[in-house]
Design a protein around this nucleic acid. Structure first.
Length: 551
RNA sequence: GCGCCCUUAGCUCAGUUGGAUAGAGCAUGUGGCUUCGAACCACAGUGCCGGGGGUUCGAAUCCCUCAGGGCGUACCA
């Protein structure tokens, strides 16, 4: 339990106890611990008196007074309890609390900020899963940044995390891919060809075809069209996948598992999943197709699982995939990071999961709102069909990995965001990522200049300035921030929290000199900023953003 | 038609799950380096929390309704 949690728990206990002494039932779970908006009210507050007002039919202020009179603060971090406003009970902590926070940071170092709400549960986070028919485009960039950081947050929160990429290497799009490649291949040798309807028109298709032609020349001209397409598709898939891996690697995203959709077919998982769906008794045949009675499982409409031509629809291998994750591989939780255009897909997937007897809460779905790229105050238009798009590699080359990852996580996944390329590049000093990195570099610089004398044991009780206390108060919240971020899947809390710490540090820096007259105070302050450096570094690590010592 | 998401300062966004006077950054204005990094700090102004009802001690937050924007609603993926 962190120092912060200990203090919080003490307040909860003493509050529940004090209410009990008044002759009223009030459990610890009912105590709502809050942080007052105005710091002059202290570190914590509870609104217990207001909660009890309607029950006791008394003025909340009077109730608050009675609760306070019964409070036992001996041997706790609480120094002072007071009543304010409509009946808030406010708590001020003793200095020992702040000292213990810094000691805790030193003791835990690179692990400071971790918590154990995950209790070792196994979580699978599947994200990006870009279509392997082409390069990773900008739309996937947000999902990549958020998915990767979410995975990291969950791991800090005590979950055992697997990062996974689902390769859509089966079905319709693979055929279109192969047909598109074939057309370009034939075109190259001056043969007759028809470009498939809805095929992939991007230049990279020509490049892949050219590459194959360079290596194998006219070899495929004598083949049947079907085998030709298959060979080209497989060749192109290999190419694209290695390019996708390269781009993601450059972006700082590394996967534990690359899961092939096609392998689900090959291993009979799709057929098996169809059987399982039938066994639920919620399927029926109509017009030669197999339908799932999703309307019985909380979905507005029924939908088709197997078409009348015998081929499964797109959702069938996906059901098999989730069955594989949640049943076969026994993950406790599976999280999917999807684009907002898939939101209609959520109730369908959940209804299937439910019908199969799996607790739907084990499936967490994050819907990523779209990103619009803005340049010169204008929205950059992209067309995947025409192959006009900005790739992840382009973005990283233009704004850098640090800025991209930080900014994508800076906004909650649920907000539509505009990514201003000019702002991210030209006015890079306005970018919050540099603000945080600057704070880190600044601390490193100070510490390196004082390194010779840093070994002396510091007297942390000398840290009494308002800016010093504020700084400690902020860094003390770390594990709490991780816990909330993990529970809400909200990665944006982390960069925002990092900015808050950087800001508290800069304020401190401008108000208090580290290298000051009194040596003992100097050591105490060195210890303080050393602790802050650890926290900033840990936060940047979680974000996958570098923590430079010089800028 | 039905369903989901969004709407908070000039701009980009927070708002601790219903609490105290609604906050940051950017932009604007003023001030701060003979001493640790001025990529920084301090101070200043701006709000019909999209509109209107309701729930209660108390609403930006929960419910209803209307408006605007985005996206779904295939035997496409």
């Amino acid at each position: 339990m962190s120092v912060l949690q200990q203090a919080g728990q003490q307040i909860i206990s003493m509050t529940a106890e004090a209410v009990g002494a008044l002759g009223t039932e009030f459990s610890e779970e009912q105590v709502r611990l809050e942080v007052p908006k105005d710091k002059s009210f202290g570190e914590f507050s509870v609104n217990t008196a207001m909660q009890l007002a309607s029950v006791l039919r008394k003025n909340p202020r009077q109730i608050a007074q009675e609760i306070i009179a019964n409070m036992k603060t001996e041997n706790t971090y609480v120094q002072e309890v007071s009543m304010a406003g409509a009946g808030f009970i406010n708590f001020r902590l003793s200095q020992r609390y702040y000292i213990d926070v810094i000691k805790e940071i030193f003791a835990q170092g690179d692990d400071y900020g971790k918590c154990d709400i995950g209790k070792g549960k196994r979580v699978n986070v599947e994200f990006v899963s870009a279509n392997p028919t082409g390069p990773v485009h900008i739309g996937n960039a947000r999902g990549g940044a958020v998915g990767d950081v979410l995975a990291e947050i969950l791991s800090w929160a005590g979950y055992e995390v697997t990062r996974e990429f689902y390769i859509n290497d089966a079905g319709n799009q693979m055929e279109k891919f192969g047909a598109s490649l074939e057309a370009r291949y034939l075109e190259m040798f001056g043969k007759e060809f028809t470009f498939p309807e809805g095929g992939y028109e991007g230049d990279y298709i020509k490049e892949i075809a050219l590459e194959y032609a360079k290596a194998h020349q006219k070899k495929l001209l004598t083949e049947e069209s079907e085998t030709r397409q298959e060979i080209l598709a497989r060749f192109g898939l290999e190419k694209n996948l290695s390019e996708i891996k390269r781009a993601l690697d450059e972006y700082g995203v590394a996967y534990d598992v690359w899961y092939s959709e096609n392998s689900l077919y090959e291993q009979g998982c799709v057929a098996e999943a169809i059987e399982q769906m039938k066994k639920t008794g919620s399927t029926y045949e109509e017009d030669g197709a197999l339908w799932f009675r999703a309307s019985e499982w909380g979905c507005d409409k029924d939908f088709v699982l197997v078409r009348s031509n015998g081929l499964p629809t797109y959702i069938m291998p996906d059901i098999a995939y989730h069955l594989n994750k949640l049943q076969t591989r026994q993950f406790d939780i599976a999280i999917d990071v999807w684009g907002a255009d898939h939101h209609g897909y959520v109730p369908r997937m959940k209804s299937a999961i439910k019908a199969l007897g799996i607790d739907e809460d084990r499936l967490g779905i994050i819907l990523m709102q779209f990103v619009r790229l803005v340049r010169q105050e204008e929205v950059v238009r992209m067309s995947k069909r025409r192959g006009e798009m900005i790739t992840l590699s382009d973005l990283v080359a233009e704004v850098g990995r640090d800025a991209a990852r930080f900014l994508f996580n800076y906004y909650n996944f649920n907000t539509h965001m505009d990514f201003d390329l000019d702002l991210a590049v030209e006015k890079s000093n306005e970018n919050p990522v540099f603000y945080v990195q600057y704070a880190h570099a600044r601390i490193c610089s100070i510490i390196s200049q004082l390194r010779a004398t840093e070994t002396i044991e510091a007297d942390l009780s000398l840290l009494t300035e308002e800016e010093e206390i504020e700084l400690i108060k902020v860094v003390a919240r770390f594990s709490e921030e991780i816990a909330v971020a993990a529970e809400t899947f909200d990665t944006s809390r982390i960069p925002k929290y990092a900015v808050e710490i950087a800001s508290a540090f800069h304020t401190f820096y401008n108000r208090c000199r580290v290298r000051c007259e009194e040596e003992s105070l100097m050591y105490a302050r060195v210890a303080l900023i050393e602790a802050v450096r650890t926290v900033l570094k840990n936060l940047l690590n979680i974000l996958g953003v570098s923590a430079p010592e010089k800028m």
